[in-house]
Design a protein around this nucleic acid. Sequence first.
DNA 1: AACAAACACAACCGCAGTCAA
DNA 2: TTTGACTGCGGTTGTGTTTGT
Length: 295
Amino acid sequence: MGRIPCCEKDNVKKGQWTPEEDNKLSSYIAQHGTRNWRLIPKKAGLQRCGKSCRLRWTNYLRPDLKHGEFSEAEEQTIVKLHAVLGNRWSVIAAQLPGRTDNDVKNYWNTKLKKKLSGMGIDPVTHKPFSHLMAEIATALPPPHVANLAEAALGCFKDEMLHLLTKKRVEIVGGGLQPQQPAIQNPNANSSHDPSAGDRIRLGLPRAGEEQEFMVATDFLGNCGGYPPTEFGYGGVSGFVDDGEEWGSGTAGDGGGEEGGGNRVGEDPKVEKSGLFDPDCVLWDLPADDLLNPVV
DNA sequence: AACAAACACAACCGCAGTCAA
DNA sequence: TTTGACTGCGGTTGTGTTTGT
């Protein structure tokens, strides 16, 4: 009954593919197609598992693949699709011609997740951390809320410490100076801030970022929540990586972080900055198209 | 210049649904 | 109808490269 195994496991090479192997696989597929992955390695003269050949072809060798940097438009697409689809990389990748699920997954895990976290947005739910904390806090009795606040702020402190010490020496509002330990940030030091628990329970934003987060939660309130394109992460423009605002390509670049300008007091109107453009038309795509993508 | 840490990406692993024997 | 390979997918790991100290 059944079929014969796809490959003899003990006679199969693993690890990085050599250019020679790539050539063999490519030329075989060019002539015979990808009909039967079990037979392909044998017929192509490769000591590889069929599964390995399939992965190599679909993720790297296919002629229609793009190999360069992701464009800003592609970033936007990934984030917005991820907000509603979650980790359905194959579906997301299907909306990005020339990109594979592996590409998208790697890009998300290495870049986009960090960008969102750095902006105070939870990459899993795509909601501002302050909003999430408020949601959780309202569901818990007060004694647990205090404990939760301590724990959460500890995590956040670690994250911020990492970001601040590594990527950025100034913080919006002029709170930190270069070389100043991040622990002196009132936000990071919130475990000693008697009002920290209250702030979280009430869903209040952290000091210094108040303006931005208020805008985001406003949108949440007004629109009733999700997906984030409804509020376009409006105003939650953060400090990320090398200090540039994400999506600055279409944003008013002058509003950036250069020089440590104080953002509090700036016009809180939603910036139409790339990813955060609430007018983005991506969701004109019918839901069916997203779930049954054209390949 | 040497070493360590962080990053980026390719590849592997294991699971679940599908389909052929 | 049952069994087990095939396929697609998402999570995780391994490794080469880059950056910082």
